[in-house]
Design a protein around this nucleic acid. Structure first.
Lengths: 138, 138
DNA sequence: TGTAGTGTCTCTAGTGACTAGAGGGTCAAG
DNA sequence: CTTGACCCTCTAGTCACTAGAGACACTACA
């Protein structure tokens, strides 16, 4: 049995975050000592590791709740779990796409003035003022 | 002079967001009609367009406040504005890098089971349970 | 058994950048 | 002068936590 602090160290999830997961129902409420402190078993550790891993991959709490729900239903697990993962993947890809557009624009903007010290019309500021200076939508 | 709704339409910034910008000091409080409604002039429109554009490029409110501050100081504008833009650029690049790692991992995970319908050990769920199945850190 | 020090408890409030809703007042056209 | 669209302030909610206060529990050592 682990205390919340030990669980925190093993999973690298902070103590208040663990309590937050419990509050939101992602994590089952564990047993308590006589003094009202939480004591976790191996199942709690496993569950929290799962959550941590999914969060690291950017899944929302909601998506994780759905995945956990599926763990209890092996009959319909695989396809639905894959769907959730695929949705997460397109989300990530959309974000990448958008960020790459921003990257290009920012490169263009910041190249404008940094070469010859002070110019009276700052290209960065001018670019932000006039959308017309942009090469594409963002 | 524009009402807040007209300003909203022109800039595509929602009305409550405009009020929020005013509240946080990003936007100057405009004149009011006798009936206490906001009336904006061209300067207000320009300022809000600037903010919108910078937000679209992912600058934080804090960074935008700094950029606005610089607009009043042309003597030290350029270098500092470029620094802010460059910081934003590295931020964007860091995010892209991380997302690309996630993308790879998600591709790997979701390829695991979607081919032959139902399998009793869902690879998606298994992958999330065991970090050891991952190819790299994320 | 006492005590010191670390860990844990609950509760409230704060983060960033908004968004939603209630309950009212104002403006402009017809 | 009424109708309907617009606007006002204020509070509370979003997501996924994070921070802090004030109190209580556990453990190791003397």
């Amino acid at each position: 049995m682990f205390s919340i602090g030990q669980l925190s160290k093993r999973t690298k999830v902070k103590v208040p975050t663990i309590r937050y997961y419990e509050e939101t129902g992602l994590l089952d409420a564990p047993e308590r000592t006589d003094g009202n402190q939480r004591r976790y078993d191996a199942a709690g550790l496993e569950r929290l590791s799962f959550i941590k891993h999914a969060r690291d991959l950017g899944f929302s709490i909601e998506a994780i709740a759905a995945l956990i729900e599926l763990q209890g239903h092996p009959d319909r697990s695989c396809q639905e779990a894959t769907n959730i993962a695929t949705a997460q993947l397109s989300d990530v890809r959309a974000k990448i796409k958008r960020l790459r557009a921003l990257e290009k624009e920012l490169v263009r903007i910041s190249k404008g003035c940094d070469e010859d010290g002070v110019s009276e019309d700052c290209y960065v500021l001018a670019s932000l003022s006039e959308h017309g200076l942009c090469e594409r939508e963002h």
